[in-house]
Design a protein around this nucleic acid. Sequence first.
DNA 1: GAATAATGTTAGTTATTACTAACATATGTA
DNA 2: TACATATGTTAGTAATAACTAACATTATTC
Lengths: 191, 191
Amino acid sequence: MCTTEDKIIDAAIVLFSQKGYTAVTTKEIAKEAGVSEMTLFRHFENKHNLFERAFDRFVFTPKFIALFENLEWNLERDLFNICSSYQDVLRKNQKIILMHLKNDEFNPQFEKMLLKFPNEFKNLLSSYFEEMRNRGVIVENPETLAVSFLATNFGLFFTSLVMSKLTFNTDLQTCISNYVKIFTKGISLQK
Amino acid sequence: MCTTEDKIIDAAIVLFSQKGYTAVTTKEIAKEAGVSEMTLFRHFENKHNLFERAFDRFVFTPKFIALFENLEWNLERDLFNICSSYQDVLRKNQKIILMHLKNDEFNPQFEKMLLKFPNEFKNLLSSYFEEMRNRGVIVENPETLAVSFLATNFGLFFTSLVMSKLTFNTDLQTCISNYVKIFTKGISLQK
DNA sequence: GAATAATGTTAGTTATTACTAACATATGTA
DNA sequence: TACATATGTTAGTAATAACTAACATTATTC
């Protein structure tokens, strides 16, 4: 089904995201991958190299721009689509994000790549809100709205990650549509 | 100014929250504290014990209940106060939270303690929204609102932590009041 | 079926880490 | 001054981690 390298990379990303780079041993990764430790080194030379390969393999680079090309210019529907898509990006990058959280300042180059996403997304969101303001749909400051929207999205994502450990009775999907509805109503100009 | 134990605990919490338990060495902590490694072991016996002491010392146990005793039953003002206070709790527990994020599944006992906060807070919030619904101020599901509010709060907190690394022009305070305003308007029954 | 490549196994090296023992120094107190 | 206590220093131990070398075994290909 999949190559030896794939098995090792898969095992590495799982363990790195669970415990962090330092706390995981190469022996552990090899065992999880079902290969001998020697095979790991033969393929990846050293642990750090394996980390880089795992990062490159698992980082999901989204095309945010596409999200903003199919707009309906209906506030609630647009925001719901954007929110869902962003949640999807976060979920797809879940392991990378967790891995990074557990290895702060470990490698600035990866951090830079990961920070590109929210920055780019914020700018696109900001432009969207600006256009909506020009159209007279909203009045709030576009940048502030974008940051707020982004922060909430991350909060929802993270909450859903630990949700199983909490005594919450609400699922993520309900939360998202509810949030978008409220947010939309909250920023819409009343007629 | 402060005792040797204090200096060591302070150094420990800083390093643990930056790099995680495993990635930090006792030698490193001793150096950061400006004492010899031997002194560290004389006071704390072993690394894990130091971790526990640091946790106990730095965990800030909030009295959420007090937050809900001085309510004005004005949606926006109440939510603003609650939000600000919760942000304060998160900030005060910042190092503990980061330390925990970097040591997932490290110690279930600490995780349980940390999860108590959002659970308790959610229940109180939920009751608040329920009462507001009874008063005819809002119509939404109280639990959903509470989870959404909580998630956003965490998102705002976390965003503010990494804000300096992002190209955002909006500060946390602006974001909070803006969010509360929008949220309030979004859930209020229009007359 | 032979040659080649990929993997396993085992033993070992080097560096590091948590942690200890023993002794030296400083610092404050009776 | 004398004594006790806190700290520093140095050396060392046991365990573990990353990583290598050498050889055995299996799988793949021609």
